[in-house]
């Protein structure tokens, strides 16, 4: 019977004993205000390797995660920087264009203005050449005072003559166009009854120079001003080839000084009342 009672109360006894043990354990901790260094050391010895393994694993995962995050961030930054670089490249290109335009305009503005002539600066907005029929289009028209048969210059020399005009744009027949004729003279000999006809490309033919005139290779050809389109002395080119012909006149080829294919800004010459009247050569 005692055994039966014991058996029935085993659970309760165990509980009370263990509760009491726990109570002593807790009381001891509170009393000495220490935290059972020996037990903790034992626990640490047993659990230490697992904790180490856990720490290693978690820090490995953390590192991987951070690396992955930083790679993602780098990819995003890389995309942003690529966009920024392309944007800056565009800006740099625009700035370079503006710098070059600025230089060209300074060069144009630095040109000596012939007395009795007004000038208008215009941009070249188009080119056309069908065979030898060379023309340019510029960004100024009648609203800017441009009229037909006005001369057009560049820092390198004579460009051509205004051929057609609209309110905002004009068509320029360049001096290398076979339909153009500019009154000119040979600078060294001062022979002034010649006129230049275009031959396409950068070449022109000097007409009306008699066989007896003194012309040498490399002689400068300038405007004579007799046609009223240009003031006297504007450079056109230099003599490249001279040969007596069977007729009365010399066969003279002139290399034109203006680079037509790279021309971007020009000056339109406008005669004022004091300048000579126009007498365009047909």
């Amino acid at each position: 019977m005692a055994r039966g009672i014991w058996k029935r109360s085993t659970g309760l006894t165990t509980l009370l004993v263990l509760e009491f043990a726990c109570f002593l354990f807790v009381s001891y901790q509170i009393q000495v205000e220490e935290h059972l260094s020996l037990l903790e050391k034992m626990a640490l010895t047993v659990v230490g390797p697992f904790q180490h393994l856990s720490n290693e694993t978690s820090s490995f995962i953390e590192q991987r995660t951070q690396r992955s995050k930083s790679l993602d961030q780098l990819a995003v930054e890389n995309r942003q920087l690529t966009l920024k670089v392309s944007h800056l490249n565009r800006i740099e290109s625009q700035l370079e264009e503006e710098r070059l335009e600025n230089e060209r305009l300074r060069e144009l503005l630095a040109l000596p203005r012939p007395p009795g002539w007004r000038t208008v600066i215009a941009s070249v907005i188009g080119r056309s050449n069908r065979g030898d029929d060379e023309v340019l289009f510029i960004s100024r028209g009648s609203l800017s005072g441009v009229e037909r048969d006005m001369g057009v210059l560049s820092p390198a020399g004579v460009v051509g003559v205004v051929w057609e005009v609209s309110p905002y744009y004009s068509k320029i027949m360049t001096v290398n166009n076979p339909a153009t004729a500019i009154a000119c003279m040979i600078q060294s000999s001062r022979y002034a009854d010649a006129y230049l006809i275009g031959l396409g490309s950068n070449m022109g033919r000097l007409e009306n120079v008699p066989n007896f005139a003194t012309v040498s290779l490399g002689d400068k050809v300038v405007t004579s001003g007799l046609d009223g389109l240009f003031p006297k002395g504007e450079p056109i080119g230099s003599v490249l080839h001279v040969k007596p012909s069977s007729q009365m006149f010399l066969d003279i080829r002139v290399h034109l000084g203006v680079p037509f294919s790279t021309l971007e800004e020009v000056i339109v010459l406008m005669p004022t009342e004091t300048s000579e009247p126009k007498t365009a050569i047909p």
């Binding site: 509980l15 263990l18 509760e19 726990c22 109570f23 354990f25 807790v26 901790q29 509170i30 935290h35 059972l36």
Partner: peptide, 12 residues
């Protein structure tokens, strides 16, 4: 922390 406090409650 004081250890064993939770054990007392949980055993009960």
């Amino acid at each position: 922390q004081v250890k064993g406090l939770g054990a007392m409650v949980q055993m009960a």
